[in-house]
Design a protein around this nucleic acid. Structure first.
Lengths: 186, 204
DNA sequence: AGCTTACTTTCTAAAGC
DNA sequence: GCTTTAAAAAGTAAGCT
């Protein structure tokens, strides 16, 4: 009845870009309200946007990492806000900096409880990490699409490591097929 | 040429010294944990395999030694929890777990998830509980695991709750605190697992 | 006993130690 | 390998009332 693929929700998108201009982060930390810069801890300056909610790591080289956004559109919107803030500070920013999606984290629900012990053996101990003493999720590394899936006893799952929007859907279809093939899905 | 020769000797000596150190550490930790000599030998074999496969690079000798011992206990069916192993190691628990996962993967150990039942004899005897309590606890684990309650749960917490429940059922009551201490889990965990287990057993 | 906060796991880029 | 950022899953833990 309910298709697990329809339950997929993107939870986080990580992307990288660059403005093609070196930056003085000390000065930027002064001019950018709300910026966190602790060079002793980490070389990047942290800047958070409220709408859409995201966090950007801005480096001296001008390269930027954006994380925390709920969609690829939000990544572009958040980075657009940051580019405008920098331009407002008289910092030259390329016209349309290339934005590369590096990782998409999604969640989904298979709709049935899972016997993780049986699943660990069925999927193959060589491709699985399941150490409930350390973490309640079973870690499954899938080859195609190349993603990592965390499976929980509730049937809820997390798909991470993919770069394309389609990866999560393909991964859910593939894992459902494999679990059904083992006779381990409800 | 002479320098190269000396360096080889030095490297060889260092390698042997490191191996000796690793094996003596395995022995020391194994004694502290009270595991049989056979398990120490399995741990030594795992360590030597890791050494031959060049898995020590980028990791501490102590970390690999501890992870090898942890793996050996599991392989021999008398597991120690990561907490227990960390108590006798100078390597933090997090690193032991991470190193175990790595050597386990690289050496293809393919160890099955730890069975909570394997903790029952050791925990129960250190609480001086009878054979009757042990078999009751084992039964509780089997029944509740079969009903799907084990997925994602810590094997030590699961075993601890079953032992607590069995001690009540057999009129040899131990407090949650006493069981929690030997299993190194909190009373909250025992309480939570206990509630699910007695329901699965059809009690309450 | 509960509630809150926080840590465990997975992923990924960035610059530098 | 580490440092930082974000996010979900569920279990465990610690602190406070």
């Amino acid at each position: 009845m309910t298709n697990p693929a329809d339950s997929i929700e993107i939870q986080n998108v990580v992307a990288s870009t660059g403005i093609g201009q070196e930056l003085d982060l000390e000065a930027l930390a002064e001019d950018l309200p709300g910026a966190d810069f602790n060079p002793d801890n980490f070389p990047g300056l942290v800047y958070r946007t409220q709408e859409p909610k995201a966090a950007a790591l801005i480096f001296r080289s001008g390269k930027i990492v954006c994380t925390g956004a709920k969609s690829i559109d939000d990544v572009h919107e958040a980075l657009g806000i940051i580019f405008e803030k920098l331009r407002g500070l008289q910092i030259p920013v390329e016209d349309d900096p290339e934005i590369t999606v590096q990782n998409i984290v999604s969640s989904a629900d298979l709709g049935h409880n899972l016997n993780l012990n049986a699943l660990a053996i069925g999927l193959g101990l060589e491709d699985v990490e399941y150490e409930p003493e350390q973490f309640p999720g079973l870690v499954y590394r899938m080859d195609e699409p190349e993603v990592v899936i965390l499976l929980f006893g509730s049937g809820k799952i997390v798909i991470t490591g993919g770069k394309r929007t389609d990866d999560a859907e393909e991964a859910v279809e593939e894992i459902v097929e494999r679990i059904e093939g083992l006779g381990l899905l409800g | 040429r002479l320098r190269k020769w000396q360096e080889r000797i030095r490297t060889k000596d260092a390698g042997e010294r490191n191996l000796q150190f690793a094996l003596s550490e395995i022995d020391r930790m194994a004694s502290a944990l009270g595991v049989p000599r056979s398990v120490r030998e399995v741990a030594s074999v795992i360590y030597r395999r890791a050494l031959n496969e060049d898995l020590i690079r980028g990791r501490s000798i102590e970390g690999v030694s501890t992870a090898a011992l942890y793996a050996a206990c599991r392989q021999e069916g008398i597991p120690r929890s990561l907490d227990e192993v960390a108590d006798v190691s100078r390597v933090p628990q997090k690193e032991i777990g991470r190193t175990y996962r790595y050597i386990s993967q690289e050496l293809g150990l393919e160890l099955k998830p730890v069975d909570p039942k394997q903790f029952v004899p050791r925990f129960a005897s250190s609480l001086q509980l009878s054979e009757e309590v042990q078999s009751k606890a084992t039964e509780i684990i089997d029944v509740s695991a079969e009903q799907g309650l084990l997925s994602g749960k810590s094997p030590t917490g699961f075993a601890a709750a079953a032992i607590y429940a069995a001690s009540l059922l057999c009129n040899e009551k131990k407090t949650q605190r006493e069981v929690a201490d030997v299993a190194q889990v909190t009373e909250v965990t025992i309480r939570n697992r206990y509630q699910e287990q007695i329901e699965a057993m059809g009690f309450r």
